[in-house]
Design a protein around this nucleic acid. Structure first.
Length: 596
RNA sequence: GCCGUUGUAGCUCAGAUGGUAGAGCAUUUCCAUGGUAAGGAAAAGGUCUCGGGUUCAAUUCCCGACAACGGCUCCA
């Protein structure tokens, strides 16, 4: 089925469900009901509290109505007629949409890919059974054309996406052309859940949370820490090659610093509350920029020193709303793969490009492919949200677009999404459960130079305040990046990252000492190796190592200890490979060194 | 923060219309000395998330808190 037809079907299904809701809850007030990926939703004020137990009832009713073969009869009305019509039927949300259409010729909802569009002066109305809806359309002819569907969940959703508005109940459903498609989707979701970073994090003992520590605060276990450290080691290497220098700054600072940076008035709610000390009030840092800027000002800089690149895996603390916390994807304490690049305006382009190239280099090493760039721009119609330097905005956005095009990077542009201090490029990813998240970010900053008085001595010997700052976090935060790579690898870590790279399994007790000796030998070569001489059968010890997704397993018996070739069990391979001990060690070292 | 769901052993989960609970894995000990995905036995392990209420009696019913999960909003 064509994509458009599918969307029509899913949207028609939303109407059908709404019709069922109207039949069961006659006083329900309807919001909007668009098609979304894999299905649809409808926002409804039920007038009473609804729980997931009620979904089956609604689904049954919808299916019953669907079988009747109802049509989607279209009529047109003037905006005034429609307003009167929906007022009489006590549908305030529809009336509000009509008001917007009348005033603006369209509704803001259009931008959110919902159902309405303003055809000047006239609107279209669709009737399915007794349910009549204000709707732009795009429907199937008859409810019999709607494929198998299933109501999946309910959630609160603010009317028109604004938290000051009343909250409606959003009914989610999935809908497919055929039963086979629906089954496949449900199966895929099940499979995806197996790769969920929280599940693998538990299985492989990577991290955990504890109520006594606090929510959103990750406790990294030894295995998780090993992987984190490998990622950080990579970052240190790459940044060294990229001309960065590494620094270290405290996790907190005085109020004055965050007032200077301008963060405190704007982001106070997102910061942990203040700590009052004898010499002032302190805050945990929510970002590393102010510390780095202060470090820049440690001494005077010559134009010859620019670009100056200060890098740090900086620990930040953010008081994210409790409802938004999600495994490692959104936490309250995080280690950011941060760096700030201080440069002149004529250096911005090269620096920005170098950062984007660095990002792509990283992703290549990890084999990450499903990402896209998003250029977040200011909006000339919301000037109050952005620093008032129109010439810099125009210049920077044009320059960044050029860089993205030169690199052939897949990107979208988003108006009114920039930071207040400058445009940014985010790298977007989808998590295994289909949630879109920002991974990397590169941000240009026109504001820091004024706020922190950043200057350099130019070639005439004068103080120059035109210091531009690039904030960048290619590897996101350790927390979020770990979430992505866990799901990406599904827990099957490449050798260089694997918490345990080799497990040795001595056949019997009399081989244990020999295995220990090999373990020591590999250990001395910086290989993460374990020998498992537990009081269990050989088969069970192999099984346990396999279950842990260890890349290489070697059974150690008389043959191995007498210098014969080893049989090496490779993760995911049915057949073992045969090679000498020395060859195996060289193979391991190469794979670790080359990060393959 | 808001809406909804969930909370039983270290982990994954059973369980009873209200009479204080069980399995598998993991742990410990003993036996078995095994050549590539589960050898056998025993022991230990629980304030059934926490706090109130109803009741002769609450892990179970009600209320509240906390946490996790799915959304909304947010995401410097």
């Amino acid at each position: 089925m064509e994509k458009e037809q599918l969307e029509h079907m899913r949207h028609s299904c939303a109407h059908l469900v709404a019709a069922a809701v109207q039949a069961l809850y006659p006083t329900a007030k309807f919001g909007v009901g668009p098609a979304i990926e894999n299905g649809f939703y409808y926002d409804i004020d039920f007038g009473e509290s609804i729980s997931e137990n009620d979904l089956q009832k609604i689904e049954d009713k919808a299916k019953e109505l669907g079988k009747k073969g109802l049509g989607y009869a279209r009529t047109e009305m003037s905006v005034e007629e429609a307003t009167k019509f929906f007022s009489e039927r006590n549908q305030p949300f529809k009336v509000e949409l009509l008001k917007d259409i009348k005033e603006k010729g369209s509704t803001k909802m259009d931008e959110q890919n919902t159902e309405l569009s303003g055809v000047v002066g006239k609107v279209s109305i669709y009737q399915t059974g007794d349910f009549i809806d204000l709707c732009r359309g795009g429907h199937v002819e008859n409810t019999k054309e709607i494929g198998p569907f299933k109501l999946t969940k309910i959630a609160g959703a603010y009317w028109r996406g604004k938290s000051e508005n009343p909250q409606l109940t959003r009914v989610y459903g999935v809908c497919f052309a055929t039963q086979a498609d629906l089954d496949e989707y449900l199966h895929m979701m099940e499979e995806a859940l197996k790769r969920d970073h929280r599940k693998i994090g538990q299985e492989q003992e990577l991290f955990f949370f504890d109520e006594m520590v606090g929510k959103g605060l990750v406790m990294w276990l030894p295995n998780g820490t090993t992987i984190r450290n490998e990622i950080e080691k990579l970052a240190v290497e790459m940044e060294r090659k990229g001309g960065y220098t590494r620094v270290r700054t405290p996790h907190l600072a005085k109020e004055e610093m965050f007032l200077t940076s301008g963060h405190l008035p704007y982001y106070k709610d997102s910061m942990y509350p203040p700590m009052v000390m004898d010499d002032g009030t302190y805050y945990l840092k929510a970002m590393n920029c102010p510390h780095h800027h202060t470090m820049y000002n440690f001494k005077k800089h010559s134009y010859r020193e620019l670009p100056l690149r200060l890098a740090e895996y900086g620990e930040c603390y953010r008081n994210e709303l409790s409802g938004t916390l999600a495994g490692l994807l959104r936490v309250r304490a995080m280690a950011m793969n941060d760096a700030h690049i201080y440069c002149r305006k004529d250096q911005i382009k090269d620096e920005f490009k170098a950062v984007l190239e660095l990002i792509m280099k990283y992703f290549k090493i990890f084999g990450l492919e499903n990402y896209w760039f998003r250029l977040s721009k200011w909006s000339p119609s919301h000037l109050e949200k952005y620093i008032n330097q129109p010439e810099n905005w125009e210049y920077a956005e044009g320059m960044i677009r050029e860089v993205l095009q030169e690199m052939n990077a897949p990107f979208v542009e988003a108006e009114d999404e920039a930071a207040f201090y400058g445009p940014k490029v985010d790298v977007m990813f989808k998590s295994v459960i289909g949630r879109e998240e920002t991974m990397s970010t590169v941000q240009l900053d026109f504001a820091a130079k004024q706020r922190f008085g950043l200057t350099y001595t130019d070639d005439t010997g004068a103080d120059n305040n035109e210091v531009f700052v690039i904030h960048r976090a290619p590897l996101s935060t350790h927390e979020r990046f770990m979430a992505f790579v866990i799901e990406h690898f599904g827990g099957k870590w490449p050798v260089w990252m694997a918490p345990t790279q080799v497990v040795l399994v001595p056949v019997t007790e009399k081989h244990a000492a020999g295995a220990k000796q090999i373990e020591q030998e590999l250990f001395d070569l910086n290989i993460r190796v374990e020998s498992d001489d537990a009081n269990e059968t050989l088969g069970n010890r192999v099984r346990k190592a396999v279950g842990r997704q260890v890349p290489y397993i070697v059974v150690v018996g008389d043959k191995e200890l007498s210098g014969e070739d080893w049989m090496i069990r490779v993760r995911g391979e049915k057949d073992q490979i045969k090679m000498s001990k020395q060859q195996f060690i060289e193979k391991l070292q190469k794979e670790i060194k080359d990060r393959i």
